[in-house]
Design a protein around this nucleic acid. Structure first.
Lengths: 201, 201
DNA sequence: TTGTAAAATGGACGATCGTCCATTTAAATT
DNA sequence: AATTTAAATGGACGATCGTCCATTTTACAA
């Protein structure tokens, strides 16, 4: 039922998704929505929550593949590559993401979902960037790390928007390279155009 | 009428915007929509077009203030500061932007509007970055300029998303500084944290 | 002032919306 | 097997949707 809802939002958009189209796709009966979700709004909230869970679940599954002793720049690379990977960023997810985001205005649940990346991810990146900034000997490591985190997330956000508009022309490796170009300029000892650089290389 | 439509999308979202709410806000009669715009879809298309025109009109008005002999890095700075200025990026415009984008799926007119920044702007930035890249003596100036253009636009896109979610917490000067931090890392002779740097400084 | 064309109106229309509940079907318990 | 409890159904309902057009109002020419 929830998946059918997400399918509808992905296929025909939030505005055109009605109770009828949802139950039609789900093959269930009309009353279920009111019974289990307290109406359409409740179902939408549940769907949003599910989509959010799915996103983070998949993302952290990919991030867990990084070995625990990885350099911080490897963790950053993993975040970037994961967030732009086919698993996370595809026609289906991006349409859901932007479909809901447009309606985030009044609905608290949607707003929560659509909040740019979660605290855990942001914390992970900030920590990694702090280590990198300190090792790089910049003037203000904390500020630099904060900016790098914020900037990288904004970068990813922008790449998602790119993908939404031009899913065919979008080039994942190019998107990664662009981000790494900026990061390698900021931290030349830790990144190059291909991603993370081994320490001391 | 068109402005009333945009107001509605900004205030209650695309999904909840109906013909009734539009004519109510516009103070005009029901039949006007079908008469002048061939129905609701036509009105929406016109509204999207208008919003797009307004965006570029305001943006280029700001960009025209840059003196013709400005250094390329000043032009880039102008693009960034303009795109993040109150005139261009505010609660009203960002809600319209994302409200329509979520529905861009099938509607060609919306898709066109929502297409990340126009060719003219992109060309202007690419030219400026090419000059900068050549002056910086990087290995592959064209590729670097392309990446810098793409990257900066993605940056701006990400900042817009930030603003949509947290309009109160959003800090324009911080957003600018973050972008300039990355640009100054990429082109240290041309940018610093405050923006464009005078040539040869 | 009168006549004609254009612009604007607002109500009627069928379609579809989301909600709700009387009923049926399935599962669990005695 | 009989009974109770829960889950699921799908049609009815009023509200609202977008479209369309008979009518009125306005603007302009004669």
């Amino acid at each position: 039922m929830i998946e059918a809802t997400l399918d509808c939002v992905a296929e025909i958009g939030y505005a055109r998704t009605s109770v009828s189209t949802i139950i039609d796709k789900a093959g269930l009966s009309r009353g279920m929505i009111h019974l289990h979700f307290n109406g359409k709004d409740g179902l939408m909230d549940a769907a949003v929550q599910h989509a959010s869970d799915l996103y983070y679940q998949n993302l952290y599954k990919l991030l867990d593949k990084v070995r625990p002793s990885a350099w911080p720049q490897e963790q950053i690379e993993a975040v970037i590559r994961s967030d732009l990977s086919e698993t996370i960023l595809n026609r289906y997810t991006v349409r859901i993401w932007y479909g809901f985001r447009g309606e985030a205005r009044e609905r608290k649940s949607i707003r929560t979902f659509s909040d740019t990346r979660d605290v855990r991810l942001r914390g992970l990146m900030f920590e990694a960037f702090t280590t990198i900034a300190v090792a790089s000997g910049v003037d203000d490591p904390e500020q630099t790390a904060r900016d790098a985190t914020h900037g990288t997330l904004a970068f990813l956000e922008g790449m998602w928007a790119d993908y939404l508009i031009h899913p065919d022309a979008f080039d994942r490796s190019e998107a990664c390279r662009i981000i790494f170009r900026f990061l390698s300029a900021l931290f030349p000892d830790h990144f190059d155009l291909a991603g993370a650089k081994p320490d001391g290389a």
